[in-house]
Design a protein around this nucleic acid. Sequence first.
DNA 1: AGCGTCATGTAAGGAGTTACATGATTTT
DNA 2: AAAATCATGTAACTCCTTACATGACGCT
Lengths: 182, 182
Amino acid sequence: MSAIRYVLLTLLVREPLSGYDIKQQMNSRIGPFWKVGSNQIYPTLSKLRADGYVKLQGVKLHEYRPARKLYEITEQGREALKQWTVESGGLGTIRDELLLKAYNLWLVDPAKMIVRVEEIKKQHEGILADYLAKVEELKPLRDSRLKMDPISSSVAVVEFGIQYEKLYIDWCNRLLAGMGDD
Amino acid sequence: MSAIRYVLLTLLVREPLSGYDIKQQMNSRIGPFWKVGSNQIYPTLSKLRADGYVKLQGVKLHEYRPARKLYEITEQGREALKQWTVESGGLGTIRDELLLKAYNLWLVDPAKMIVRVEEIKKQHEGILADYLAKVEELKPLRDSRLKMDPISSSVAVVEFGIQYEKLYIDWCNRLLAGMGDD
DNA sequence: AGCGTCATGTAAGGAGTTACATGATTTT
DNA sequence: AAAATCATGTAACTCCTTACATGACGCT
């Protein structure tokens, strides 16, 4: 079973969601770690349902504007997700154009590259600010009685994001220092 | 023009290479930042050649065992690469299964997850060691007369890798501390 | 009436993964 | 003689990206 299916189950194990909800949560929560479009979400939900990992909780016409299909994880889906989580998987990859472009720093006009790096740095500063806001929002929601609750797990992931963005911004600064007047 | 084409040009702008060489350099140099297989390399080289971005330097039957096609970047290829390097591009994504799995920490048996995290941590320690060795190997090769030479650009990228692996290992340690006996 | 957002989906095409095919040379 | 490595490629399949299509509801 492919990774996207587990991505959806990862969200559905916490609460029943519609395809649209999943798309929203992808953009905000899982954001830069994994991106999924509606073209993948809807067919994947159908397949998960056909295989018995999720079921339709009901299509609610009332309360919501257009019909909204709420999907709920099944016991089978929950077990499959638990197993996948503790299974070994391959190493990840960082797919970042700037990292590739940095190999060509020596080739190009530093002035032009400085503009580009500053631009990307600003974008990462924006993401960092979002993560910091999110972690502050999540922290008080943690269930202190449990060692590991869903919120704490989310916090752990967002904290990775925070550290990553900080390192990215630092790296941009070092690049800029190396290209600037020295 | 797509990203893989620039990946190949990024390597070819430094020295003429064969498809096989490119694959080797991918695994070692660009490694975890961008992965490309032979199925993408050979057709892409053909397309780049058809479009005039690279040319065949000659097929050397002597000196090498099987026939080895050496590709060389053209002036057109060099200009295209320079332009792409200073162009703006989208944000990168980290595609890492453990990051996704961490969302499900609360779901699973901590003992099983500890084994998994320790395993992945060890892999990252190995990559870090490789990067550290590589940077020490590259540093003395830098051309100190230039502000930016190809080696310095490579060093900048590897240094990103070093910082990333350190952060990953730290994050694994924090996860383990959170799951362990406390 | 028109625009924005909610909500579900499809189409087309390129990118990426895993595996296989072929054949020469070098090492054990 | 067999196995490993060098070297070029193809095949099949899944994934991912960008864009489009459809329609209801809510606001101005």
